[in-house]
Simulated scan of single mutants.
Amino acid sequence: MLRHWHEAVPNDRMAHLLKDTMRAFDRSLRARLARHGVQMGHWVYLRILWERDGLTKRELSMEAGVAEPTTFIALRAMESLGYVRLEQRADNRKNVYVHLTDEGRQLKGVLVPLAEEVNAIALQGVPEAEAAAARRTLLTMLDNLSRDEAQGD
């Protein structure tokens, strides 16, 4: 794959480069999470809940960009692992609220350093100013594509 990017098609589309880079990030983090028995799908939800605990299942699905049935399956598995507690309130039986357990909260201290390690590996040899410029560029690209998507709706 690396030869492909450096030699065969060095000027290929940005989307392909980003996709392959994301896959490499994903593989690296997935391997580290697996050593702690955590699935990548659970990582997505844990990251959100560490910032905003107590979301509804629907809110969590929207934040993660995942369909509600998929989220519900993951949450049931996370509940059985002791990471989250699912709760319905007497005043609103329709909504399912998702709360981290103590074990789910404690995973943050174990797992976040793994993601930071992956980022550090990816940025080895990249000057700080170039990393900051890449981040600004990617955010601009994301903003542009989000606007384009909204205009298409």
Rank of each mutant, 00 (worst) to 15 (best):
K57N: 12
T71I: 09
M40T: 06
P69A: 08
R35C: 13
L33N: 02
V84G: 09
L100Q: 01
L107A: 02
V38L: 12
Q124W: 00
W50K: 12
E87L: 12
N144L: 15
N119W: 10
A122F: 13
L60C: 04
A129C: 03
S80E: 15
V84C: 08
G54N: 05
S146F: 03
K108D: 03
K94Q: 12
V126E: 01
L86F: 11
A131M: 09
R32P: 09
S80P: 01
R136K: 13
R52M: 10
L81A: 14
W43Y: 01
D102S: 06
A34C: 01
T137S: 11
R85N: 04
V38N: 10
L86H: 09
S80T: 15
S80G: 07
G54A: 06
L100T: 05
G37T: 06
L142T: 15
E116Y: 05
A64L: 01
T137D: 09
Y83G: 00
A133C: 09
I48Q: 02
L49F: 05
R135V: 14
Y97H: 14
A134W: 03
T140V: 07
L86N: 06
Y97K: 01
D91M: 13
L81K: 14
A74E: 10
L114A: 04
V98A: 08
N119V: 14
V38E: 05
M78K: 12
G37F: 03
E63C: 13
R105D: 02
R136H: 11
L60I: 11
G109R: 09
S80D: 14
R47W: 00
E87A: 02
G41C: 08
L86E: 06
E63A: 15
D143N: 09
N144A: 15
H99S: 03
H36G: 04
R58T: 14
G82V: 11
S61K: 03
R135Q: 13
L49W: 04
V126H: 01
G82F: 09
R135E: 15
A132L: 13
G37Y: 06
D91Q: 15
E79I: 01
A132R: 13
W50A: 10
R135L: 15
V118F: 07
L123H: 02
R32W: 10
E128S: 13
N92D: 15
A77M: 05
H99R: 09
L138T: 09
L81P: 00
T140K: 11
T70G: 02
L46M: 11
L75G: 12
K57E: 15
A132C: 05
N95I: 00
I121P: 00
R35M: 15
G41Y: 10
Y83K: 03
E59T: 00
M40K: 12
T137G: 11
V84P: 10
E59Q: 14
V44M: 05
S146M: 12
V38Q: 07
L145D: 11
D91C: 08
E128N: 02
P69G: 08
E87H: 11
D102C: 00
E51R: 14
A90W: 05
P113M: 00
E116C: 03
L60Y: 11
G125P: 02
T70C: 05
A129H: 13
N119F: 14
L145G: 02
A133I: 01
Y45V: 04
E116A: 02
V66H: 03
L139P: 00
